[in-house]
Structure formats: structure tokens, C-alpha cells
């Protein structure tokens, strides 16, 4: 990896962190600042559903 590639990689890392941070701040600007609280019970089911969908995708491709 030459120096130019290293700077590119570092730039990508910074872009991801700063861009992501900007996206989080933008979500606060549009939706209001979130306060901690509420139950994460429903989220567990959403996480399980996402995992199930992701696990099913390759099998679906295999059989289709």
C-alpha cells in the first residue's frame, strides 16, 4: 500500500466517522433530540426478524 492509498484509506475512515456523525446530528435536527428511556423489548423482535431475513436471503437465492 503506497502513501497515496494510505491517505485515501484514512480519508475514507474520517468520512465514515464524520459523515455518520453528521447523519446522527441531522436525525436529531429533524426528529428532535432523543432522550433515554422507553422499553427495548420490541427492538429485540425487530433485531431477530432482521437476522432471520438476512439468514434467509442466501437460501432464497439458492432455491429460486
Amino acid at each position: 500500500m503506497n502513501i497515496k492509498q494510505s491517505w485515501k484509506a484514512l480519508g475514507t475512515v474520517l468520512l465514515v466517522f464524520l459523515g455518520g456523525m453528521a447523519a446522527v446530528f441531522a436525525s436529531f435536527a429533524f426528529g428532535g433530540f432523543p432522550f433515554p428511556g422507553g422499553s427495548a423489548a420490541g427492538i429485540v423482535w425487530a433485531e431477530l426478524a432482521l437476522l432471520a431475513v438476512l439468514l434467509a436471503v442466501p437460501l432464497f437465492r439458492l432455491f429460486s
Binding site: V16, G20, A23, V24, S27, P34, F35, A40, I43, A46
Partner: peptide, 21 residues
């Protein structure tokens, strides 16, 4: 826990960011 939206956003940004890097 700061709500479902923030949790989902953090997951999406982490996934996209890891892919980009």
C-alpha cells in the same frame, strides 16, 4: 437506549461505514 430510530440508524451507519472502509 435512545429509541428505536436511533438504534436502527446506528446499525445502518455502522454497516454502511464498515462496508465503505
Amino acid at each position: 437506549f435512545f429509541g428505536a430510530f436511533h438504534h436502527g440508524l446506528a446499525y445502518a451507519l455502522a454497516t454502511l461505514g464498515t462496508f465503505l472502509i
